[in-house]
Design a protein around this nucleic acid. Structure first.
Length: 669
DNA sequence: TGCGGCGGCGCC
DNA sequence: AAAGGGCGCCGCCGCA
């Protein structure tokens, strides 16, 4: 393999963090300060180029000319262009380097991201953290941050600092980054061709972006500001000016607790975190307090009640997302670059910037949006009491297709509840799958949650849902109760115990599989280099990392794995070390976690498989895929999406899949 | 002034 | 022995 590693340092009038990579790179004010490139991989005598492009000397221009020729050769030869967060450098190349500096075009498929390489290795995504976690020879230079603050953004007067000495330092910093990137590229597993294809497919989704209803988002932002100010004013008057915003959590708790609240309320507020007793006013706690006060079970002074109610109203929103949309939307109203391939160590996608993976699910139907929209845009005062909640419910429908297009949306039904028994490759698991086969064949039958509820001796489908969502991965009473509160289910302890016992008894295959996974993983640690199977997955310890191979061939990595006193641990990429830690944080790989990891990872593989095949995806969320297609072709796309999602790939034969499709004119649930 | 911790929110 | 875990963003608050 041959790589050309590239790193640009740039400056711009656009705020990178606020506007995101795509808007930043496309902006005409964005310029290159310097560039460093180096050859890596199979070169007999690798070359390195360093040039300052803000005020280039003749030497800089010579280096630049030489680099352009080399880059053109690399592109034609089909070598890979690698960068850490390649989306950034790729776009600087396309938007700035090609136009300003005469660089040749590089085919999109030739780009390769070393940050994505870190992530498929379950290592920290960012350069600094990755080099620290690996104890790499070259570390990211911390002076860089201060240089960026000085050189890359204008001061309050709108002027850029062009101090030649600082620019020289910047080029050195850039070269250090490239050296660090090279270490990472060389010392961890490269992306496989499939992983690289998955990364490329993800970048195509990022290029497509998703359109927002800009006028609505603007109006919603204004209305939310008015409403939050009103709640703040109310809190201020209730608390005599101590609390001025609903977000001032500490002040609110302190104020409430200083006013002799009823014991019952304090008891409800008490939570344990990391072995410490604390008070919380999280939403489920507020709901319980307010409900009991309504039912006269707690004698709550009116001003306390009103403070909690105001807090509840204010917190019911994620309306900051409207501003986020506006910050990141480009001139065509599309937000780009929101998805990250393998953002999670299970090779699941994550979403960032405009976080599309946590839009409130409970949302307004299109008809209500059509009523609300003109009112909001015309500035009419909304008469409804829960304005912020209404705005939060309008978040999903603010994502819209282009004129003449529709969304075609499908989601896999109970995909994790199917993948787990399938992976166990067991008789009991097969029986569980038979239940899904029956349900898929005859939709008039009860769904699985209703069945699980019935098995637990109740008619409450919500209880069934909590059972199936909480108990599959080794969780017991705590897991059940924690999930239960998300669904408004509150059961006494003895009932929870009974439900957990009953579920484990009638799903013995599950506990057997958890134990098999743990045994296989630990045995793999005890005999490096040998493969140990559990159900349809297998583990191997390569002396550094514990690897898990999924049925599709995808590897999961548990870096720096250790087995000490019977406890299996590994490096945890997305935990940050404390300043006094001399080692990267680690976590324990218990049986439930191993089961969850292989299940989520297998489901993520199914998702990627579909995404590789269909090139009109604009949104996805673990078990859900949305295409944006021409309205006149919608039915054809529905059929295609349904067929693609319900056809198990060759490696997943025997896994029953069901994925109903719908057409949407705004995004919904 | 910037940064990180923390509590909180939302989803699968 | 028991253990929800997987994410990212917002805003406050205290510290340097």
């Amino acid at each position: 393999m041959k790589f050309l590693i590239i790193d640009f340092e740039t400056r711009s009038r656009v705020d990178l963090k606020r506007a995101g990579t795509d808007r930043y790179c496309a902006d005409p004010s964005t310029e290159i300060l310097c560039m460093v490139a180096t050859e890596a991989g199979n070169f007999s005598s690798p070359r390195t180029w360093v040039c300052n492009l803000l005020k280039p000397t003749d030497d800089d221009l010579d280096v630049l000319g030489d680099f352009r020729d080399a880059a053109q050769y690399h592109a034609i030869a089909g070598y890979l262009f690698a960068a850490h967060n390649a989306r950034f450098d790729q776009q600087i190349w396309e938007y700035v380097a090609v136009n300003d500096w005469g660089f040749s075009e590089v085919p999109a498929d030739s780009w390769y991201c070393t940050s994505a390489q870190m992530r498929v290795n379950a290592l920290p995504a960012n350069l600094d953290d990755a080099t620290r976690a690996l104890n790499a020879e070259h570390r990211k230079d911390h002076a860089g941050q201060s240089l960026i603050r000085k050189l890359s953004m204008p001061n309050e007067m709108g002027q850029f600092n062009e101090d030649p000495a600082l620019l020289v330092q910047m080029a050195a910093y850039c070269a250090a980054d490239v050296a660090a990137t090279k270490d990472l590229l060389n010392n961890t597993r490269l992306m496989t061709p499939t992983e690289h294809a998955d990364w490329l497919a993800n970048e195509r989704i990022n290029d497509r972006g998703i359109r927002i209803d800009r006028s609505f988002a603007e109006a919603a932002t204004r209305q939310a500001a008015t409403e939050t100010a009103a709640i703040g004013a109310e809190l201020s008057s209730l608390t005599g000016g101590v609390v001025t915003k609903h977000t001032q959590n500490q002040r609110i708790k302190k104020w409430l607790l200083a006013r002799n609240p009823p014991d019952m309320m304090v008891k409800l507020m008490t939570v344990f975190k990391d072995g410490q007793q604390k008070q919380s006013l999280a939403s489920d706690i507020r709901t319980q307090i307010l409900n009991r006060a309504d039912a006269n079970e707690i004698d709550l002074a009116p001003e306390l009640y009103n403070v909690i109610a105001a807090l509840d109203e204010g917190n019911k929103s994620s309306v900051a997302k409207y501003q986020r949309m506006l910050d990141r939307a480009e001139v065509d109203d599309r937000v780009r670059g929101s998805f990250m391939y393998a953002g999670a160590s299970t090779i699941r996608y994550t979403s960032r910037g405009l976080q599309l993976h946590n839009f409130k699910r409970d949302c307004l139907p299109v008809a209500e949006m059509d009523t609300l929209r003109p009112m909001l845009i015309n500035g009419a005062a909304l008469s409804q009491s829960a304005v912020l909640e209404t705005l939060a419910k309008a978040l999903r429908p603010t994502l819209i297709p282009d004129d003449g297009n529709v969304f075609v949306v499908a989601d896999w039904k109970s995909i994790e509840n199917r993948a787990l028994p399938w992976l166990s490759d067991s008789e009991g698991g097969e029986k569980k799958l038979d239940m899904f086969r029956e349900i898929d064949a005859d939709p008039t039958l009860h769904d699985m949650y209703a069945r699980a509820a019935k098995d637990a001796g109740t008619d409450d489908r919500q209880v069934g849902k909590v059972i199936e969502l909480s108990l599959g991965f080794g969780g017991a009473n705590g897991a059940f109760s924690s999930m239960a509160k998300n669904y408004g289910v509150y059961l006494p302890d003895h009932q929870v115990s009974r439900i957990v016992k009953a579920w484990r008894l009638s799903n013995k295959w599950a506990e057997t599989f958890w134990n098999e996974l743990e045994k296989a993983a630990k045995n793999a640690m005890r005999s490096p280099g040998s493969v140990h199977e559990a159900g349809r997955v297998s583990y191997l310890f390569n002396g550094d990392s514990l690897l898990c191979e999924l049925p599709c061939g995808q590897l999961l990595t548990y870096p720096k794995a250790r087995l000490q006193q019977g406890e299996l641990t590994a490096l945890k990429a997305n935990w940050k070390p404390s300043p006094d830690d001399d080692e990267w944080p680690r976590y324990s790989l218990w049986r439930g976690l191993l089961a969850e990891n292989v299940t989520q990872a297998t489901c993520a593989s199914l998702l990627r498989q579909v995404i590789r095949q269909i090139d009109s995806v604009v949104l996805h969320c673990h078990d859900e895929i949305a295409l944006e297609v021409s309205a006149v072709e919608a039915e054809d796309w529905c059929a295609l999406l349904n067929k693609t999602m319900e056809t198990a790939p060759a490696w997943a034969t025997g896994l029953p899949l069901s994925a109903p499709v719908q057409i949407m004119t705004r995004y919904g649930k």
